[in-house]
Amino acid sequence: MRIAIVALAAILPTAAIAAPAPPLSWGKPGVPLATYRADSVDCAMRAYYTDVSGTEGAKNFVQGSKLIETYAGAPGDPLGNELMIGTIVQGVHVDESRKDVKTFQLDLVNKCLIDHGYHRFRLTDEQRKHLEKLKIGSEARHSYLYHLASDPAVLSAQAAPDPALTPQP
């Protein structure tokens, strides 16, 4: 359980920060809006609920958590214990471990979208600028992306290679 808390604490701050519009998106010519949304939620949920414990990042978090439990509240020199905990946290390589788990989950989303018949396309500078003006999660943003992602002319003219997927643990 502690691993989930540590991992969640490491990931949440970055999720709350607004980011610029991505250069790539996913689309499928003529896809109905209801299907587009359902596929999006389905792929996100598959990644969210997939066990990540087999990834190197999660294994690092588990190992670090176990070591921290050994020193947290242990009798002896409190300062020495705190220094050891700090060393363990540095050894876990939080950023690298978080990136490993994130890559694993992103690959799951990518595979799911490809399995549903979606392909990547590159957003133009103008499209990205317009998208950045729309609030993340807003109906206007969803609608704008859907219109791009379902337009065969946009998908053809702005096609980008689908990502190579990394092997799953």
Score class of each variant (00 low, 15 high):
33 L>C: 01
22 P>L: 03
117 G>H: 04
44 A>N: 11
51 D>M: 06
24 L>N: 12
37 R>V: 11
40 S>V: 00
65 S>L: 01
3 I>R: 09
28 K>V: 00
3 I>T: 15
101 V>M: 14
58 A>W: 14
61 F>K: 06
82 E>S: 08
114 I>R: 02
12 L>T: 15
75 P>W: 00
49 Y>H: 10
20 P>Y: 09
115 D>R: 00
132 E>G: 15
81 N>F: 03
2 R>V: 12
40 S>W: 08
68 I>A: 08
128 R>I: 05
45 M>C: 05
130 H>M: 13
113 L>I: 01
36 Y>G: 05
55 T>F: 03
36 Y>L: 05
119 H>P: 01
9 A>T: 14
13 P>K: 04
53 S>E: 07
115 D>K: 00
27 G>D: 07
93 H>M: 06
111 K>P: 15
1 M>Q: 11
115 D>Q: 04
108 L>G: 10
43 C>H: 04
86 G>N: 14
77 D>C: 06
70 T>V: 14
52 V>F: 03
126 E>N: 09
58 A>R: 11
53 S>H: 09
45 M>P: 02
32 P>W: 01
135 K>L: 13
19 A>I: 06
98 R>V: 15
5 I>T: 15
60 N>Q: 12
32 P>K: 03
5 I>W: 02
48 Y>H: 13
41 V>H: 08
59 K>S: 02
101 V>R: 09
124 T>N: 09
22 P>Q: 11
55 T>Q: 02
34 A>M: 10
134 L>M: 15
42 D>M: 09
90 Q>A: 12
60 N>V: 02
23 P>S: 13
89 V>D: 05
7 A>S: 10
112 C>N: 09
118 Y>T: 05
39 D>M: 02
80 G>F: 00
6 V>L: 06
95 D>S: 12
61 F>V: 08
61 F>M: 03
7 A>P: 07
65 S>C: 10
49 Y>V: 15
48 Y>I: 14
137 G>D: 14
38 A>T: 11
86 G>A: 07
40 S>F: 05
98 R>Y: 06
46 R>L: 15
120 R>F: 03
91 G>L: 07
